[in-house]
Write a protein that binds this DNA or RNA. Structure first.
Lengths: 249, 249
DNA sequence: CGAACACTTGAACCTAATCAATGAGTGTGG
DNA sequence: CCACACTCATTGATTAGGTTCAAGTGTTCG
């Protein structure tokens, strides 16, 4: 599959990024750019382009040769992979100021996943070739990058372990807690957390069918542990934590 | 669990490694030390100790704070993780000249897995603090390390995807093919590959019970796709590839 | 030779997938 | 603004895939 990557609106910005102080400060929260001076960061930003993507658009598709690496500015991106069957797996969610696509740029096997915007998004994009130069020129970024990749490997070990040993119900509970902490928003004046996520995407994330997932969620709704509708979920972490932590079941 | 890591025989060698040319050449096949000159490699080796471990011994345990990073010289090490239940998951196999334990040294959450020798082994060990210095002093190693970690993330994506979408039978077939390629040995004058691996470990690797795994293997034995006994398996890759690749089932 | 361990097999049970049908939300065009 | 189509979500009935429990067989090792 060598078809060109579809990036809706990719022609919108062909010039280097307008660097406002606000953007710089936002980017310093990116794990890659931690402890980087404003000046250095601005220089690195000169190599970047802004790539908007409307809902459903792809930054890259599995099988593509990596040409760029990205840092998400706003919106949300899902890392998905559709295997030999028709079943689609969601391998991860990318939230603003997180880098994505750069593991594949170094891994040497092409893109293993597709990156699809699940809402209107924008990302900074650097040519993959620049990445190597940035890493060699800026030891701090290289160090940050090590820690980031290490943390991701650890996170994947955790998830893999869950898939190898835990029941679906626990996996769903743990997924909801983890998603609540990352892509969730606190509901005003309540311990509840709201996650904008289609139930089918949750299913694809935990490795289940939408049917079974829906049954579990319905049961939890009856128990007042969560509430949900088309494309959203509200969860009360306390109750779910009990299910996620309990031994057995 | 802050109990001291049990490394049987860890007192055997307290001094720096005797560096024979053979060992140096072997280590240049390690992904970390690719394209490193003999001289540099010898210097780096001076910081290393040899850590033998007899079968069943641990290099580190999940929960430990990382103190060393390792490169396996001989034997085999399994990366395992025992969760809240009693079920044990095997997250990976380490074969000679592969590094292990260094993701955790950088990840910052302590060891997420335990590293247990599944046969008498020996590994080179560097103090974790030295790792950072090596990475900053030797850009080539840093680059190798990036590529290695990236490749591992890709490999984990692959495995995670399998766990999310594929049936147990296909997972077993794919696991056997992959293990045959890494820890297997060709049988003389035959396309067959022999893997020294307990069936229960295969089960823990694919996320199943030994019972179900045994049933699948028995069926395949009847079909002359594999042969096996206590602690070993012989497989004919051609037949298994059909099962691993087939859509459905 | 005996004990421990790994593997196998059968039967009952349970979890989750599949098939089928219905209901609810969202977007579009008239 | 409403009707329509479309997609997402729910629910019931059925089936399949895996687990669990239990018993038995063969290997290896002390």
């Amino acid at each position: 599959m060598t078809a060109a990557t579809v990036v809706p609106g990719s022609r919108a910005s062909r010039h280097s990024v307008a660097v406002g102080s606000r953007k710089v400060r936002q980017l310093q929260r990116c794990p890659l750019f931690r402890s980087i001076s404003d000046v250095t960061l601005r220089r690195i930003l000169e190599y970047a382009r802004v790539r908007p993507a409307s809902r459903g658009g792809f930054y890259f598709r599995q099988g593509d040769q990596p040409v760029e690496i990205y840092v998400l500015l706003r919106g949300r991106v899902q890392l998905i992979r559709s295997g030999s069957g028709d079943r689609r797996a969601i391998l991860g969610f990318v939230t603003p100021v997180e880098p994505f696509g750069y593991e594949d740029a170094l891994g040497g096997s092409g893109h293993m996943v597709s990156a699809q915007a699940s809402e209107d998004s924008a990302a900074l994009a650097w040519p993959a070739a620049v990445l190597v130069r940035i890493l060699t020129d800026h030891p701090v970024i290289a160090h940050n990058s090590f820690c980031l990749m290490a943390a991701r490997i650890q996170e994947k070990w955790d998830r893999l372990h869950g898939m190898l040993t835990e029941s679906l119900e626990r996996r769903v509970a743990r997924a909801l807690l983890s998603l609540g902490a990352t892509i969730g928003r606190r509901v005003e004046g309540s311990p509840a957390v709201r996650v904008m996520l289609a139930h089918r995407d949750l299913a694809a994330f935990v490795g289940a069918t939408p049917y079974t997932t829906s049954r579990i969620l319905s049961r939890w709704k009856r128990l007042r542990l969560i509430d949900g509708g088309r494309g959203w979920l509200t969860l009360w972490p306390r109750g779910l934590a009990a299910i996620a932590g309990d031994r057995r079941k």
